[in-house]
């Protein structure tokens, strides 16, 4: 068992571009769920719309990348408005189911043969990220420390993604400490009380949904650019469940929660993944019990188990306060 490989894999994943993308999407989800109390289970739909907005604009319609970005952002605003209309007046559980349904409807449409001319259907789209990598100032080489190494392309993606995470975190920090944020947090506690004080709960929820959704779509764009491809099956409900695990792990309703959560989530997940592969390779675990392709399934099972244990034993996550959690009246 080469522990150096296992640990370095974990670190590489924890601070890598994927962790940054998930941190960004989780920041959006944290605004919905952690601060406003919106049980939005369709965050992956925002990522989908942002990713395809960029990919289809460049790949199908030959538009410049920055136009694709604008289209992606625009579509996420439209999605938020469309999604919010039927769902924001619903109770939490209805909202959850409706948003999962909406996410699946979108994914199925993007995946369908009907939409193939624009979205590439089951095959998705490729070759749209060229402009992004062309502007990278990083010379061709590999970079890193110890065994943690990134290519220049990955490093550029990583840097931009984490910069976006930082920007989003600053925006959220400013907002939650403002009077706007106060109304949002009050809505999480008791909507009727907020109404009785003259604030339009629906309008605030919609603003939260739009802002968190736009942040989610930015994450989707970065994910697409990083992978240099989009495929509808990468945007299924499991992604939202991962995001919830990340938000809960870091601490819902805390500015740094999603960032800490994502770094830890990916580090731990990759650690187990890598350790399991090493164990199989070294013969500690026989391939008849778990073969190499099934290691991927084990990581999902672990996330599920982790989420269950978290919610039972430490629902406030790493950065949350237990005292505050006990005051949760919902």
């Amino acid at each position: 068992m080469d522990w150096a490989v296992i640990v370095s894999d974990a670190i590489r994943s924890g601070i890598g571009p994927v962790a940054a993308v998930y941190a960004l999407a989780a920041i959006g989800l944290n605004l919905h769920f952690g601060y406003t109390g919106l049980l939005n289970f369709g965050q992956v739909a925002f990522m989908l719309v942002g990713a395809y907005g960029v990919a289809a604009s460049v790949s199908t319609y030959d538009l410049p990348l920055w136009v694709g970005v604008l289209i992606g952002l625009g579509s996420s605003v439209v999605l938020a408005l469309l999604l919010g209309l039927p769902t924001l007046r619903l109770r939490a559980e209805y909202l959850a189911i409706a948003t999962i349904a909406a996410g699946e409807i979108l994914r199925l449409f993007y995946r369908s043969s009907w939409a193939e001319p624009v979205t590439g259907g089951v095959f998705g789209l490729q070759r749209f990220a060229v402009e992004f990598y062309d502007v990278s100032p990083i010379p061709r080489d590999t970079y890193g420390f110890w065994l943690v190494r990134y290519t220049s392309l990955d490093l550029w993606a990583l840097a931009v993604a984490w910069a976006m995470v930082l920007l989003a975190a600053v925006v959220i920090a400013l907002l939650v400490h403002s009077p706007w944020g106060r109304v949002i947090r009050a809505i999480r506690e008791d909507e009727d009380a907020v109404r009785s004080l003259g604030k339009s709960v629906y309008a605030y929820k919609m603003q939260s949904l739009v802002l968190g959704g736009v942040i989610g779509s930015m994450a989707g764009m970065m994910l697409a650019i990083q992978n240099q491809s989009v495929n509808p099956d990468s945007y299924d409900p499991v992604v939202t469940f991962f995001l919830y695990t990340i938000v809960v792990l870091g601490g819902a309703g805390r500015v740094l929660g999603p960032i800490v959560g994502s770094i830890l989530f990916w580090a731990i997940l990759t650690f187990f993944d890598s350790a399991l592969r090493e164990a199989i390779g070294a013969g500690y675990v026989s391939p008849s019990v778990i073969s190499a392709p099934e290691v991927g399934a084990v990581r999902f099972a672990l996330v599920g188990l982790g989420l269950v244990l978290l919610m039972i034993f430490r629902p406030q996550g790493l950065l949350g306060s237990r005292k505050e959690m006990l005051l949760d009246a919902r």
Binding site: L174, S178, W180, R182, V183, Q207
Partner: peptide, 9 residues
């Protein structure tokens, strides 16, 4: 004033 989204920032 601060209860508006943009002003809040």
């Amino acid at each position: 004033r601060g209860e508006r989204l943009v002003a809040g920032l």
